[in-house]
């Protein structure tokens, strides 16, 4: 068990070094995300000029939600994992894992964790630059019990994010180019993950239905726990549904891997 963990610890450390090499890419990306934040501040600021609360939440609550969402994107979001996995399958780089006692999912997940550690740290640089301008617009009163419940939700969100990206990468066994699928899925995940607007602003029935989809647990769920947009009962039920989706997606990832390998042809030495 310990030797297995040690194996992936090394993968994690190599991944960390490799991602530190690309620190400027992450830094530039996090800088551009400030523009995305500016759009949010301008749009919602204008929408709130006609109303003190929207969906029961103040402007500051909503802006805090979006700032937290930005941090989560860099901390647990899957950026390029689907394309990287696709590339490794197309180029035959996965062949080496077929001959070694290395689990490909665990290998890629270790690299994902190291990459998010680097990008998660770098997102704080532009945020700290923006803080003098935006701190007055934020509601920074986080309750300890919410933080405690948000931690397992965050870990499961990261697993869902990564596993969905992994499954899309696996599609390369069947399709030469997965970019269209990935961008289509990204649009759906962005919308139903609450990155366009807080999902609780949807009509009640649609919001209730959205809670049964995996996208709900990618970003919205942990952000809503911390920012107080969900009550204790909803959080408890949500953690159960989230666990269900983690297990379902892990099973799907394993199925796609085994089925995909049956189609795979390894050529060359």
């Amino acid at each position: 068990m310990l030797s297995t963990l040690n194996k992936y610890r090394h993968v994690f450390l190599v991944g960390l070094q490799s991602n530190i090499v690309y620190r400027w890419n992450f830094a530039v990306r996090s800088f551009f995300s400030l523009f995305q934040l500016a759009v949010v501040f301008i749009l919602w600021g204008a929408a709130y000029r006609g109303a003190t609360t929207i969906g029961g939440f103040s402007l500051h609550d909503t802006l805090t939600y979006f700032v937290l969402l930005l941090v989560l994107q860099f901390l647990i979001g899957a950026f390029q994992e689907d394309y990287q996995i696709s590339e490794e399958i197309r180029n035959g780089l996965i062949n080496q894992f077929l001959l070694k006692p290395v689990n490909y999912y665990a290998y890629r997940f270790s690299i994902f964790v190291s990459a998010r550690l680097v990008s998660g740290a770098l997102v704080f640089i532009p945020l700290l630059c923006a803080l003098p301008f935006i701190h007055g617009d934020l509601t920074l009163t986080f309750e300890p019990w919410r933080i405690a419940l948000a931690l397992p939700a965050l870990i499961m969100s990261a697993l869902i994010q990564f596993t969905i990206a992994y499954c899309f990468g696996m599609l390369t066994f069947w399709f030469l180019d997965i970019q269209g699928f990935v961008i289509l899925s990204f649009a759906i995940e962005t919308l139903l993950g609450g990155q366009i607007f807080p999902l609780d602003l949807l009509p009640a029935k649609i919001f209730a239905a959205a809670q049964y989809l995996p996208f709900f647990y990618q970003m919205y769920f942990p952000a809503a726990i911390v920012t107080g947009r969900l009550g204790a009962e909803s959080i408890g039920r949500g953690l159960g549904i989230q666990l269900f989706w983690v297990l379902t997606l892990l099973a799907l990832a394993q199925l796609l891997w085994t089925r995909g390998l049956r189609r795979h042809t390894a050529v060359g030495g």
């Binding site: 000029r49 006609g50 929207i54 366009i196 607007f197 602003l201």
Partner: peptide, 17 residues
């Protein structure tokens, strides 16, 4: 997605800027 954003915002307010 962009049209839905407009739809959702205007369910809660009548005017934006």
């Amino acid at each position: 997605v962009n049209l839905l954003l407009v739809q959702v915002i205007y369910q809660h307010t009548s005017s934006v800027a």
